[in-house]
């Protein structure tokens, strides 16, 4: 026999899970430029492959690990990351990390880029792949060469010095949920219990767990 309430609870549960997936999915893409979100045809995105731990973009820490995706304005950018290789499983997993690498790459509008790293013969090899063409993105030397011969095609790209590149957007707190755990003390005595030792708590004293909506 089917309880009609079960369907209702199941719907609520599925709805909550889907909402959570949508929220987590949307949180994975971060636009790293000022102003309103632009269509993807006007920007490019970069993410890390499973063997890469992203540390910073244009010298600003992002550390989305291997999960974050970041939208960037077209032009040269700097990525700092580590290569990582895991072996084993769960409690027996061992992770080997490389030193930090910094790569510059040219972002073209509408393109997705992926930071890649592989460990070959005890030496890490890193590169940035343009997923649209499945070829390497233009690197530091390519960008410098294009700039010298004025073949970048856009004056705004030439104006940007990747060695001093700074994101146009800085991280700002106070947006989104915030979770609190704390302890409050104060107030007049509300309850007194007389036992072997006298014990009690004031009216304002509590252990609190809070969730901030905005």
């Amino acid at each position: 026999m089917t309880n009609p309430n079960c369907a209702t609870w199941a719907q609520w549960f599925v709805g909550a899970v889907m909402a959570g997936m949508l929220l987590s999915g949307s949180a994975c893409t971060t636009s790293l430029y000022a102003g309103a979100r632009r269509p993807f045809s006007d920007v490019g995105s970069v993410s890390a492959s499973s063997t890469v731990e992203l540390i910073s973009l244009d010298r600003v820490e992002v550390q989305g690990g291997t999960f974050g995706r970041y939208e960037l304005l077209p032009g040269p950018h700097l990525a700092t990351f580590r290569g990582r290789r895991s072996s084993g499983f769960l409690f027996f997993e061992e992770t080997e990390k490389s030193r930090e690498f910094t790569s510059c790459f040219l972002v073209e509008p509408g393109h997705r880029y992926q930071l890649m790293a592989t460990l070959e013969s005890n030496a890490w090899e890193t590169w940035v792949r343009d997923r649209a063409s499945d070829q390497d993105a233009l690197g530091c030397e390519d960008i410098a060469s294009l700039a010298r011969t004025n073949r970048l095609g856009s004056a705004s790209l030439l104006d940007r010095d990747t060695s001093r590149a700074v994101l146009s957007r800085t991280p700002r707190p106070g947006n989104g949920p915030e979770f609190f755990l704390g302890y409050d003390y104060g107030g007049k005595t509300l309850v007194t219990a007389t036992m072997a030792v006298r014990n009690g708590f004031p009216a304002g004293m509590d252990f609190s767990w809070d969730w901030e909506a905005w």
């Binding site: 707190p173 106070g174 947006n175 989104g176 609190f180 755990l181 409050d184 009216a203 901030e212």
Partner: peptide, 17 residues
């Protein structure tokens, strides 16, 4: 009325979007 003014110390975490 029982006064319950208090001072609280909290630690927080924000998953900045």
């Amino acid at each position: 009325a029982i006064r319950a003014d208090n001072v609280g110390l909290t630690f927080s975490y924000q998953p900045n979007p």
